[in-house]
C-alpha cells in the first residue's frame, strides 16, 4: 500500500506538468476561522515533511517572506506540539540567516521570488506559497482560498528536486483534481 503510493508519487514526479489543484479543508465560521484553517493546514504540511539529517521532532524555523495574502497571523498549530518558531524576514535576509527550515512566501516582487526559489533548490527547505493558486511559480505547496474555502496543491517537480521527503498520503491529497470538488 505504502509502496504503491510512493511509486505513484514518483511516477507523478516524472510527468512534465505535475502541478495539482487543491483539495478542500473545512473552514469554520467566524472572524478567525480562516486564520485557524491556514495555521492548521501549514502545521499539517510541516508535520508530514521529513528533513534529512534531522530528527523528526526537532523544532523548526518558519520564515515569512513578503506579505501573506490569506491571513496575516501565521502561527502553525501542529498536533503533538512540535514547536515552530515564526520569523519575518526580508528576501535578502533569508540567505544570510541560513537556518530557515520553512519558507512561507507571501506576496513579493517576481525577481525576489525567483531568486528565493533558485536559492532553495537543492537545500532542505520547504517552500509554501499563498500567492500562487495554480502553484506554477516553483513553491512546493501552495495554499489557495476561494469562496471561503481553503485548499492546497502540491508541486511535485519542486518536491522532487529537493532532498525533503513528503508523506505520499499528503502528496495524494494534493493531487486530487478539481473534479472531486
Amino acid at each position: 500500500m505504502l509502496g504503491s503510493l510512493f511509486l505513484s508519487g514518483i511516477l507523478a514526479v516524472a510527468q512534465p506538468v505535475a502541478v495539482q489543484t487543491a483539495n478542500q479543508t473545512i473552514v469554520e465560521d467566524g472572524a478567525d476561522g480562516m486564520a485557524r484553517a491556514v495555521n492548521r493546514m501549514v502545521g499539517g504540511i510541516i508535520s508530514y515533511v521529513r528533513w534529512p539529517e534531522s530528527p523528526a521532532a526537532a523544532a523548526r524555523n518558519l520564515c515569512i517572506v513578503g506579505s501573506p495574502t490569506i491571513t496575516a497571523s501565521i502561527a502553525p498549530s501542529i498536533a503533538g506540539g512540535l514547536p515552530v518558531t515564526v520569523h519575518r524576514l526580508s528576501p535578502a535576509a533569508v540567505s544570510v540567516r541560513k537556518d530557515c527550515d520553512i519558507l512561507f512566501l507571501g506576496r513579493m516582487a517576481v525577481a525576489d521570488r525567483q531568486r528565493l526559489i533558485g536559492w532553495v533548490r537543492g537545500r532542505a527547505v520547504l517552500t509554501i506559497s499563498d500567492d500562487d493558486p495554480d502553484c506554477l511559480h516553483g513553491a512546493m505547496f501552495c495554499l489557495s482560498a476561494r469562496a471561503g474555502r481553503l485548499g492546497f496543491s502540491v508541486n511535485l517537480d519542486a518536491i522532487g528536486r529537493g532532498p525533503l521527503r513528503v508523506d505520499p498520503r499528503v502528496l495524494k491529497m494534493g493531487q486530487n483534481d478539481g473534479s472531486a470538488t
Binding site: 483539495n23 479543508t25 473545512i26 492548521r40 493546514m41 502545521g43 498520503r169 491529497m173 470538488t181
Partner: peptide, 25 residues
C-alpha cells in the same frame, strides 16, 4: 487500522474528501 492510516492526513487537514479517499480501499 488501514482506515486509520489512510484517513490520518485527512483528519490532520480536516478534509472530508480526503477522508473519503482514505477509507475508499
Amino acid at each position: 487500522r488501514l482506515g486509520a492510516y489512510g484517513a490520518e492526513p485527512a483528519l490532520v487537514f480536516n478534509d472530508p474528501l480526503a477522508a473519503r479517499d482514505g477509507i475508499e480501499p
